[in-house]
Design a protein around this nucleic acid. Structure first.
Lengths: 207, 207
DNA sequence: TAGAAATGACCGCCGGGTAAGTTACCTCGT
DNA sequence: ACGAGGTAACTTACCCGGCGGTCATTTCTA
């Protein structure tokens, strides 16, 4: 190492440290929400000083934005992949969930980041969050549109309510998954399939 | 009026004022969450001073508990009524939603109170919240148990995940409803029925 | 030793909570 | 009938702790 720009570190390169901070912060933001998460706590959990966090990310919102960007990329890329595989209706929903379970295994809290109600509604971080949330919501919208269209429903309020409900279902399953760390990704997918089957059979029986 | 105990008021009896404060606070807590809601804001919205709120409710948590008690009663009573009417499975779910739409029309934010993630997890208010949440969750559990049991599923993790999902669905629909004030209660019930029908027909078509 | 990296100590603000003061109403003695 | 005094309701002005954010100083590497 002759002329590295990040001289002065205690052996840990800056990029790694940033990653570590983002990892720790994502857990905290995801678990407690933006408002209830303190920068000092994040710093302590990451084993560094609060001032260093500010030196890296500029502000709490900056840190939040970094977490969102990582989370958003992770999810959007994966969901877009599923969107391209030609499945539709409920099947597409299950596949999307399966993909999410797989990609989020080991970082289950991440989903919550993009749907945090305590996060500020404006500012640069909100813009980042909004971009990713919109991207994901667009895909949900697309899937719901197809599902409902095939059932003869085109009312856009119906579509909008169903999109919201779908996102809520994903929320719930993620929450449950976070609360049950021993459950693996494939296990979750099978569970979801099973539960949907029960719903349908109930309707078929009692219709 | 000869010997009223609440002498000295400016014409408005205390009970009414408390009700008004709880009403205003419920809106704020429901919309912004416990953490993001300031007592001063609530007081201003209610047209009184912050100190009076403390004189009535003792603390922010006390105020919160009062809101929770009202909301919890309202909902638990109604959901228990539906639980006794003999319906089961998806049908029971829809009837529960219909009852909720009806009873919450005009106070739609109330549902969120009992499921506020930013509320403190311990303390007296949390106990009140926990009691009502447990009561409602018990009913959800009961309904899900029946639904899944009829479909041959008895695994308690499946049940637990389904309960969570059901509550999440209710959450989402309430959120959507709050965002669409022009939609009436019966309209919502029809919408939900329609959407479930679409789900089932999709499964029937694609299997 | 130069200079970047990292920190501990600090500031200002905001929000929960309190105490002292003010207003309104009731009571009772004259 | 009426006003002085007492009491409860209510408000204003303040305290205090915690958190976002900053900076002078120290520590470490090249």
């Amino acid at each position: 190492m002759t002329s590295r720009p990040n001289a002065g570190t205690k052996g840990v390169p800056r990029a790694e440290r940033e990653q570590e901070i983002v990892r720790v912060a994502s857990v905290a933001f995801g678990r407690d929400g933006f408002a209830a998460t303190g920068v000092a706590d994040v710093a302590r959990s990451a084993g560094i000083s609060k001032a260093l966090v500010y030196s890296y990310f500029g502000s709490k919102e900056g840190l939040h934005a970094a977490c969102l960007a990582e989370a958003g990329d992770l999810l959007a890329v994966e969901i877009e992949r599923v969107a391209r595989d030609g499945s539709a209706g409920v099947e597409r929903g299950v596949r999307t969930l399966a993909a999410m379970f797989t990609v989020l295994d080991g970082r289950r809290h991440v989903w919550r980041l993009l749907r945090d109600r305590s996060a500020p509604q404006d500012g640069p971080a909100a813009e980042v969050a909004g971009r990713y949330a919109a991207r994901i919501e667009t895909l949900a919208h697309e899937g719901v549109l197809e599902l409902l269209g095939d059932a003869g429903i085109t009312d856009e309020l119906d579509v909008s309510a169903m999109v919201r409900t779908w996102l809520g279902i994903v929320d719930s399953l993620m929450d449950w998954w976070v609360a049950h760390p021993d459950q693996g990704a494939e296990e979750m997918t099978r569970r979801v399939t099973r539960l949907i089957g029960a719903l349908v059979s109930d309707q078929a029986r009692r219709g």
